[in-house]
Nucleic acid binder design. Structure first.
Lengths: 99, 99
DNA sequence: GAAATTGTTCCACAATTAGTTAACTTTGTA
DNA sequence: TACAAAGTTAACTAATTGTGGAACAATTTC
């Protein structure tokens, strides 16, 4: 799995983001943590591709303000948006693996 | 990658679903094709777990009608819903890999 | 075949994302 | 410092997901 970034389970996201937290606190952080990590990856990949938010936005027919919101985890995104951003916008390949 | 199901790129979804199709026709099928494949996986995993749609729905606090719609690709879903269904509902592990 | 279980579809409504504009902030640079 | 470029945020609208119930269809079981 060299040269690929990945998002794994809740547990790892949450630990990475918030440290060890109790299960009561878990749920309220979950969706935010996830979308935030996806935003982080998007930002990394975008910068590696040497694109500004506005350039990426243009590629997929969006506005830079929307890209910013996604990168900062301000919104949950739909599966189709995930593919649109990474595959269509950045030419990356997305695998969703269930095991 | 034994014992794991996975969703790969557009190309594969679309070919699997619709056969070879021109790039003009592509976009209109893309999101539908994707959510459909995710629905297929959900159904497979649910059956392997020996759950009815209603039982799965109960686990994640939804209704069976919604599970049905997802499994049949009638709706795009959000990232958080993906995790909720597979991890919370079925105890599976989801990896989203970008390469 | 009848009954029960499971799955699908439809309609309505609530909640949230997606899309847009504009103002503001931060960063980089001459 | 001043200017330009890049990024962030707020507010609003439109479109879509998510939720719920009920009726219907399909499948399984007796």
């Amino acid at each position: 799995m060299k040269n690929s970034k990945h998002i794994t389970t809740f547990e790892e996201h949450l630990t990475r983001q918030y440290g060890q937290i109790g299960s009561e606190k878990r749920t309220e952080f979950e969706s935010k943590a996830k979308s935030f990590v996806i935003g982080e990856l998007l930002k990394e990949e975008r910068l590696e591709a040497n694109l500004t938010q506005e350039e990426l936005a243009d590629k997929i027919g969006a506005k830079k303000s929307y890209i910013s919101r996604v990168e900062n985890g301000k919104t949950d995104i739909q599966i189709s948006t995930l593919f649109r951003l990474f595959e269509f916008g950045l030419g990356k390949r997305i695998n969703i693996i269930i095991e």
